[in-house]
């Protein structure tokens, strides 16, 4: 019943996972370039939906206490 992607847990310090050595480690390969592009596009989309003045928004979000 595991529809989840099976990811192998590995302890910090264990370096023996070549294919999961992602972000940062191997710059320049097509996969990481694609990933960087995807992240750029995500951040751009976020910029379009968030109110530009973050500080105003955060400070303005004050509720009365609930239960």
């Amino acid at each position: 019943m595991s529809a989840q992607p099976q990811k192998q847990p590995n302890r910090p310090g264990g370096e023996e996972t070549p294919e999961s050595a992602d972000s940062g480690q191997v710059k320049g390969n097509p996969q990481s370039a694609e990933r960087a592009q995807e992240l750029d596009s995500l951040l751009d989309e976020i910029d379009t939906v968030l109110e530009a003045n973050a500080e105003e928004f955060v400070k303005g979000f004050v509720q009365k206490g609930g239960q």
């Binding site: 303005g60 979000f61 004050v62």
Partner: peptide
């Protein structure tokens, strides 16, 4: 409408 539990003044709702 935010489905969260805390505002910027520290009020909480559940």
């Amino acid at each position: 409408v935010l489905k969260n539990n805390v505002d910027s003044a520290g009020n909480s709702y559940g």
